[in-house]
Write a protein that binds this DNA or RNA. Structure first.
Ligand SMILES: [Mn+2]
Ligand SMILES: [Mn+2]
Ligand SMILES: [Zn+2]
Ligand SMILES: [Zn+2]
Lengths: 130, 130
DNA sequence: ATTGGTTTTGACAATCATTATCAATAGGCG
DNA sequence: CGCCTATTGATAATGATTGTCAAAACCAAT
């Protein structure tokens, strides 16, 4: 049985407060900055748990770091992410879902999953990082 | 000026022979297995160069490892990848390109790039890894 | 409220991929 | 051939992530 600890709640809360996708290291830094003595390994475990139970979305940054986000919906969706400030827009696109399913089927692939993310500069960041 | 070394050619050749996406570590192992004394750092550098000059495609595996492939075309395209054996199918889909461009524009994002990959089990691997 | 079994934590070590060093090596032009 | 310099590779360093395990915290049952 899963137990309730302030550490898990702290991670959940910090993830909710975050503007966009954040790394485990980054979230740990943020938590420490606010006075929390939570351990780094615990942050990693909490984020992995949240992702496993569907309470958080995760993706690999272009640099290969694992990033997490508390999304507003638990339905399957994708993201438009600012590569400068991390702000994220949730995107639903049935057309892409159907396309992915068909592409896999047409080539005899089963148990297909897909990674669809768009990275760019948000309107606020476009001026500062041309 | 860039010099020609047998190491660069060895990496290029090994990448051509590979069925699908491979990691730097994996390619280095393969090269060693065939008797090549090439160094690991050199494989990393050669792959980075090939990717930078557009001669190879690269992507992040779901586990966060960088994978490379010598694709048949240098045009922009995406991939359908067997997560068991690595065999890869190159996919072109204008509909997805247009969708990605529009999604970014609609939300005021500029300099947008996208990651679109489909992972599944190829027809040959479906039986062995249900 | 106290107990006791089980889960969770966290400091630290261990992994693993990737990158940085830097002396030795080897292209390639004159 | 000889020199200059890009490249190599053994090795150390880095950085994210995971493993270890004794101590601390949960929580259901007393
Ligand atoms: Mn989708
Ligand atoms: Mn595309
Ligand atoms: Zn931004
Ligand atoms: Zn396969």
């Amino acid at each position: 049985m899963k137990r309730n600890t302030w550490q898990r709640e702290a991670v959940r809360a910090a993830l909710d407060k975050a503007e966009g996708f954040v790394s485990a290291q980054g979230l740990h830094s943020t938590l420490h900055a606010t006075g929390s003595p939570i351990g780094l390994a615990t942050v990693y475990r909490a984020l992995a748990d949240l992702a496993a139970e569907g309470a958080a979305d995760s993706l690999q940054s272009p640099e290969g770091e694992s990033l997490y986000r508390a999304c507003s919906t638990n339905d399957h969706h994708h993201h438009l992410i600012c590569r400068n400030c991390g702000v994220t827009v949730e995107i639903e696109a049935d057309a892409v879902e159907i396309w992915a399913r068909n592409v896999a089927a047409e080539h005899g692939f089963s148990q297909a999953a897909h990674v669809v993310d768009v990275f760019g500069l948000c309107a606020a960041c476009a001026p500062v990082a041309p």
